[in-house]
């Protein structure tokens, strides 16, 4: 069972001769959310970029990443099918909330079905009736929920969460976090959360030492 999840084996990351990560190995099972804790500069965001496929070419990298038993290191971002939720919500400003969501629905699905999925996502995010809204008019928590639903509508095989709650205030953070965790769990996919917020606890917490530097 575990072999179908997200598996990192002996991952090394470095830049300009400086080592950021030295031999990290990690297995995340479907439905499991692992938190990677670490101070800034500990390489956790670079790790997210490495898994997602957006790491700058100037980084030195080693180690394998497999997802559903497929080695994904050599795949470009768009073929990894890994959803990402960033610190910034990056909702596309020129599209409505509904269009942002529809943008993520895979192709080859009929119009009615696309619409149904978008509507379901809005219901799930408790944002019914928001489809025609301009993202700029949404609150921070609403934006975060739309961003997550958008990532999930693309049917990712895994989710990466790059400090997605750090821009939200404390009370909102709690709600959005709970929403995110339940929603991801419902999809039964592996998820990795990087954060420096001790509150962002999940199934398993791994702390990256600054000793790696």
């Amino acid at each position: 069972m575990t072999s179908t999840g997200l598996i990192l084996k002996d991952v090394h990351l470095g830049i300009g001769g400086r080592t950021l990560l030295n031999g990290l190995s990690l297995e995340i099972a479907p439905g499991e959310i692992v938190t990677l804790m670490g101070e800034s500069g500990s390489g956790k965001s670079s790790l997210i970029a490495y898994i997602c496929g957006s790491l700058d070419a100037e980084f030195d990298v080693a180690g394998s990443i497999t997802l559903e038993e497929q080695d994904i290191v050599s795949l470009p971002i768009e073929r990894r099918r890994i959803g990402v939720m960033f610190q910034d919500d990056v909702l596309f400003a020129h599209m409505s909330v509904g269009e942002n969501l529809a943008f993520a629905v895979p192709k080859g699905i009929g119009k009615a079905e696309r619409q149904r999925r978008v509507d379901d996502a809005l219901v799930e995010a408790e944002l019914e009736g928001f489809a025609a809204r301009d993202p700029a008019t949404l609150s921070g928590g609403q934006k975060a929920r739309v961003a997550l639903m958008r990532a999930l509508l693309a049917e990712p095989r895994a989710m990466l969460l790059d400090e997605p709650f750090s821009r939200l205030d404390a009370t909102l953070r709690e709600r959005v976090r709970n929403f995110a965790f339940t929603t991801i769990k419902r999809r039964n996919i592996p998820a990795l959360l990087v954060t420096h917020d001790l509150q962002d606890k999940t199934d398993r917490v791994i702390t990256l030492g600054t000793a790696n530097n």
Binding site: S54, E78, I82, D88, V90, A93, A154, P156
Partner: peptide, 25 residues
């Protein structure tokens, strides 16, 4: 940059992602 990453992580080819997501803005 982040918008491109976001769109590509949803499976969009780079040029298409740029034209649909970045270009209008």
């Amino acid at each position: 940059g982040t918008m491109m990453r976001s769109a590509r992580s949803m499976g969009y080819a780079p040029a298409r992602a740029w034209l649909l997501v970045v270009a209008p803005q």
